[in-house]
């Protein structure tokens, strides 16, 4: 279970200066990851209602487990169909919306909670810090999968329960990162000057601390997308993800896993969508970090 990410320590490490431009970065921005993201995630997420050839839940029992085009199938179902004859292309496209919304909402909730607490802990220190950091420890010591299972047993799996699990996995991590940054900023001259000048805590937090950590938060948040999407898939595997027949990629892969040898396409295309999305989000996140992380700029 992805509790942590490489970014956690890497964000502290300085990153390269003059990167040679390679095929990924023709114009200074990562063209390929962005293009892939647009194709696999953003465009289908926003426009699948109009672009997808079928409804995501439209079954056709006469066309069950049709192979994809070029593998014995035809253009009526370019990615083939699943056990209920649902069009995999359409489902994968609709799945993008759920991937995007789970990521955005889940990360947003986790980030807001985690960063706020991290800000408080790092800025006020003392008891605040002790209590919040103990909460962080407690949260890390609780296996998130078990929380997810308990939640699912409690109220049935739902979009909300998935969001809660995502937020639970992320908040402690953000609290830690933001606290560490704020602890450093707190010692800087401009904060000291603001304190001397008599600014209120709120004003200092708003004017001096937050703007300096927001970049880190954005970069780290970007890098969580992959973790959230694979987490959702694992939840679906355990039967505690977003309930069927909603076409999340995770559920599609989990449902198709048994047919891996007989109807590989059922899990392959949503799996590929996960792979490409996570890959490109991570590449994009790396690029973003180099671009706006204050620490990398310092180098």
């Amino acid at each position: 279970m992805p509790i942590s990410t490489p970014a956690s320590a890497e964000s502290v490490a300085p990153v390269a200066r003059k990167r040679r431009r390679n095929f990924l970065r023709p114009g200074g921005y990562p063209a390929l990851p962005i293009a892939i993201l647009m194709i696999t995630l953003i465009i289908p997420a926003l426009f699948s209602q109009w672009l997808a050839p079928y409804g995501p839940e439209a079954t056709n029992l006469r066309a069950r487990l049709q192979p994809p085009v070029f593998f014995g199938g035809d253009w009526s179902h370019p990615f083939g169909t699943d056990r209920l004859g649902r069009d995999i292309l359409s489902r994968t496209m609709h799945g993008a919306w759920y991937a995007l919304s789970i990521s955005v909402v889940g990360i947003f909730v986790g980030v807001v909670i985690g960063s706020s607490l991290g800000l408080i802990a790092g800025y006020f220190r003392g008891w605040w810090d002790t209590i919040i950091m103990r909460l962080v420890d407690i949260s890390l010591a609780l296996p998130a999968m078990l929380l997810a299972l308990a939640l699912a047993a409690l109220s049935g799996p739902s979009f909300q329960s998935v969001i809660i699990v995502v937020a639970f996995v992320l908040w402690a991590y953000f609290a830690r990162q933001v606290r560490a940054e704020v602890l450093g900023l707190r010692e800087r001259d401009f904060v000291a000057r603001a304190v001397v000048a008599g600014s209120s805590h709120l004003a200092i937090l708003r004017r001096h601390i937050l703007p300096n950590v927001v970049n880190t938060i954005v970069v780290l948040a970007t890098l969580q997308v992959g973790i959230v999407i694979t987490l959702e898939a694992s939840l679906s595997f355990l039967g505690i993800g977003i309930p069927r027949p909603i076409p999340t990629w995770g559920l599609m892969v989990a449902d198709g896993r048994q047919l891996l040898t007989s109807a590989w396409w059922v899990s392959f295309f949503p799996g590929l969508a996960i792979l490409l999305t996570v890959l490109s989000v991570n590449l994009f996140g790396d690029w973003l970090r180099e671009k706006i992380d204050p620490k990398s700029r310092r180098v």
Binding site: A152, A153, G156, P157, G239, P243, R244, P245
Partner: peptide, 9 residues
């Protein structure tokens, strides 16, 4: 409306 639940529930 589909409600996903395990058998004990």
């Amino acid at each position: 409306e589909i409600r996903e639940m395990d058998w004990p529930t």
